[in-house]
Simulated scan of single mutants.
Amino acid sequence: MLHALQVFTTVIVGVMVGVEFCVAVFVNAIMNALPGDNGQLGRSHGGRLLGAVMPFWYFTSLGLAAIWAVATWGEQGSALVVTAVGLLVVSVLMSVLVLVPINNRGKTWTPENRPSDWEQQTRRWDRYHYLRVAVIVGAFAFLVGALV
C-alpha cells in the first residue's frame, strides 16, 4: 500500500510539473506570438480553466506528499520527502500570495476592460511562474530520489 502511495504521489506531482512547465515554456510563448488581442484573450481563458483545476492539484500533491512523509518518518529517504513537502508548501504559498491574485484579475480581462498595465502584470506573473516551476521541479526530483 505504501509503495502504491509513493508511486501515485510521484506521478501526480510529475504530471503537475509537466503541465506547469508546458505553460511556462510553450503555452505562454504561443500566446505571446498570437496577433492582436488573441494572446491576451487566450491567457484569460487559460487563467479561468487552469485557475479552476490547479488549486486542487497543488493541494492534492501536497497532501499526498505529506502522508508519504508521515508514513516513512525516520526511514531511509524520508528527509527527501520532507524536503519535497517543504518545497510544495513554498509553491502553494507563492501561488496563493502572488500568482493567484494576478490570475484572478487577468482571467476577467478583455481588450475592452483590461488595465493599462496589463502587460506588466502578465510579465510579473510569468516571472513568478518560472520560479514556481523551478520549486516544483525540485520537489518532484526529491520525490523521485526518495522513491528510488
Rank of each mutant, 00 (worst) to 15 (best):
D126T: 08
R123V: 06
G106F: 00
T122Y: 04
G106V: 00
T122G: 11
W125M: 05
W109C: 02
R124V: 01
G106H: 05
Y130W: 14
T110D: 06
E119R: 13
V98A: 09
V133T: 14
A134G: 15
P111L: 10
W125S: 06
R114V: 02
R105V: 02
P115N: 06
N103Y: 00
Q121V: 01
V98Y: 08
V135E: 13
Q120S: 12
L93Q: 10
T110P: 09
V137K: 08
V98Q: 08
Q121S: 09
I136F: 11
L97H: 08
R105L: 13
P111C: 08
I102R: 09
H129Q: 04
E112Y: 05
D117K: 01
Q121R: 14
I136L: 13
T122N: 14
Q121W: 02
K107T: 06
V135R: 09
N103K: 04
Y128G: 15
M94Y: 04
P111R: 06
I102G: 03
V133G: 10
L131E: 06
W109M: 02
R114S: 09
R114L: 03
D126P: 00
P115C: 04
V135F: 09
D117V: 01
E119M: 06
L97M: 14
L93Y: 11
R114F: 03
R123T: 07
Q120E: 14
V133P: 11
G138Q: 12
P111S: 10
T122M: 08
I102F: 02
S116L: 08
N113A: 06
L131W: 12
V100L: 11
R124G: 00
Q121A: 12
I136E: 13
E112R: 09
W118G: 00
V100R: 11
V133K: 09
T110R: 05
S116Y: 02
R127N: 09
Q121P: 00
R124W: 03
M94K: 04
A134N: 05
P101C: 03
G138E: 13
D117W: 00
V96L: 15
D126R: 05
T122L: 08
L93F: 14
I102W: 04
W109D: 05
Q121I: 00
W118L: 00
V96G: 14
A134I: 13
W118M: 01
R114T: 04
G138C: 13
W109G: 02
